Amino acid sequence: MCHTDVPHGQVTPAVDRREVRVPLATGEFMPGTLLTDGSEGPGILVAADIHGPSPFYDALAARLASAGYTVLLPDYFFRQGPPAGPDLESAFARRGKLDEARTLHDLDDACGWLAAETGSSRVGSIGFCMGATFTLDLASTRSDMVTVAYYGFPVPQSTLVAPPPRPVDLVESQRGPVLAFWGEEDRGVGLDHVRAYAGLAEQANPAFAYEILPGLGHGFLATSDIDDRTDPGGRTWHRVLHLFGDHLRDASGGTA
């Protein structure tokens, strides 16, 4: 299960939103929303799942913005346009048209743009499902990242039409703080791949940490109370906030 709607009872903070066009190396511009609370804090990129920048991700981005960060929610499906419908089948059909290796370069450009916008020496990223696969790749291809990955695919599915680089193939180059989460009941991601990836990441990167949550499946944050530290999913969210607080605040150039 991926994310589209804001969970029942979860309040989206009121923050400033600005539509932006992120320049890419191709000469194109990737659209996105920049969310802030007016404090000009360090930047965090939110990489959404197969549905793109849905209300769920806008709400999470607003939460991060209300914590003092400059948050970019890009639409990396901009070349494909909106899906034919709101159902998962339409989302998969649109994904089949996406060059995911090209998308990784687009997100790399977006991280560079966000660093320049905020004047920070480090950029945060948080990704979910296919978006988490991208953030794990970025943790291995950039040296300035503070990375969070929820249920990413260390080995992307063999059915993908134009897959991104496999994070497991890049893991020896992983750098910077990385925090990754998976659910123990996630049948699609391949827990054997997860454990193999985590073992290699621990050897390559002393700043890598991960958790496999018992009893939870794919997309568990969509059914979690992220305000409740006793909720397993909520506890992961508080770990995320601590990670960004510990490793982005000192890289903000004094503006946060």
Results as ranks from 00 to 15, higher is better:
134 F>T: 05
116 A>N: 13
114 L>M: 12
174 Q>P: 10
161 V>Y: 06
88 L>E: 11
168 V>Q: 14
74 P>M: 03
139 A>E: 12
176 G>I: 07
144 D>T: 04
75 D>L: 03
87 D>S: 12
146 V>K: 04
123 V>K: 13
173 S>L: 09
66 S>R: 13
41 G>S: 12
125 S>A: 15
99 D>Q: 07
139 A>D: 00
88 L>P: 02
76 Y>C: 03
172 E>Q: 13
104 L>S: 07
120 S>M: 14
132 A>R: 06
151 Y>V: 13
45 L>F: 07
99 D>H: 12
101 A>N: 13
68 G>E: 03
120 S>Q: 10
102 R>W: 08
145 M>F: 00
155 V>E: 15
154 P>G: 08
70 T>E: 01
168 V>E: 15
57 Y>M: 02
144 D>Q: 12
171 V>I: 10
43 G>N: 07
98 L>C: 02
130 M>A: 13
168 V>P: 03
50 I>H: 09
130 M>T: 11
50 I>W: 07
80 Q>T: 05
53 P>D: 11
92 F>P: 00
142 R>Y: 04
110 A>L: 10
124 G>D: 08
106 D>A: 08
91 A>H: 02
171 V>P: 10
46 V>N: 02
155 V>A: 15
75 D>N: 14
74 P>L: 06
96 G>H: 10
40 E>R: 15
72 L>W: 02
85 G>I: 00
106 D>S: 14
136 L>V: 00
81 G>I: 01
66 S>Y: 06
74 P>F: 10
88 L>H: 08
85 G>N: 10
147 T>L: 11
178 V>N: 05
42 P>L: 03
71 V>R: 01
148 V>E: 07
110 A>T: 04
69 Y>E: 00
163 P>L: 12
137 D>G: 09
43 G>Q: 11
102 R>V: 01
137 D>L: 11
109 D>W: 08
56 F>W: 06
144 D>K: 07
113 W>L: 10
94 R>Y: 06
126 I>D: 10
83 P>V: 03
64 L>C: 07
46 V>F: 05
131 G>M: 06
122 R>W: 04
154 P>S: 03
173 S>G: 07
135 T>P: 06
123 V>W: 09
119 G>M: 12
118 T>C: 08
109 D>M: 06
70 T>S: 09
154 P>F: 04
108 D>M: 12
95 R>H: 09
155 V>H: 10
143 S>Y: 00
